[in-house]
Design a protein around this nucleic acid. Structure first.
Lengths: 122, 122
DNA sequence: CGCGATACTTTGCATCGCAAAGCGCGCGGC
DNA sequence: GCCGCGCGCTTTGCGATGCAAAGTATCGCG
């Protein structure tokens, strides 16, 4: 079966932004989209099951990319960094999500055509 | 808003297998699930928009992880590597996909609660 | 023959994820 | 009142990895 010219890049999923498409950062962004009021560093750490260092690094990357904003303040005389999705970040994340949905759809379509390919291997 | 103990790891998505969760390999696996009869190296290369070296490396990784099988043969006096999903590979990919769906659902739920958070910021 | 094209593989580099160690600063014990 | 523990976060170091450019091998064609 030859691949038609039309199919060129059919499954390349260019929209999968490297900054977003990363387990830890995907976790962070999903957490944030679910908590529009923002989340404190320790909460984020727990929700995403990340170590301090890890979360710190990923937040820096996300901030650099202007996907999140970090508000460093004080709460009960302790430092407290509150993290929020930026408007642009929300937009880009939703775009990314749309591509993910496409992946899911592409697979679902195929899985449906061959629900148990081990028994009727082409 | 404090995060309850229950929410611990709520968004950690442990099921996002590092081997699968990678733009290029995700492309390859999706292509393969859509073509259960297997795909030749050049076809895969076109579908995923990958360079030779890139595809070669990723296929090696996928084979190492026993997600795909590589059948190196000859066709018209030219080497031809045909690539197929293994049964285990298909299973693990579908598991991965289930987690992706969860991500999409989590986000959709949140986006629905605040369709345009830029206008009514918290 | 030799030149180009096809089908890969290997090498090299620059990036990046991750964990361990480090830093600053309140607070409680003594 | 200083001392050390703990919390909140940052920096450092390293091993792994994605990616592209270069390399190898074989075939077809003039």
């Amino acid at each position: 079966m030859a691949i038609s010219e039309r199919e060129h890049g059919r499954f390349s999923y260019e929209g999968l932004d490297r900054v977003i498409h990363e387990k830890a950062r995907l976790s962070v962004l999903t957490s944030l989209v679910a908590h529009p009021k923002g989340l404190a560093f320790p909460d984020l750490k727990r929700l995403c099951n990340l170590t301090d260092g890890n979360l710190s690094r990923h937040l820096a990357v996300l901030q650099e990319a202007d996907l999140v904003s970090l508000e460093k303040g004080q709460s009960q005389n302790r430092p407290q960094t509150v993290c929020r999705l930026t408007t642009a970040g929300r937009g880009r994340f939703l775009d990314y999500l749309a591509v993910l949905e496409q992946v899911v759809r592409d697979t679902a379509k195929a899985a449906e055509r061959a629900p148990d390919f081990s028994t009727k291997t082409a």
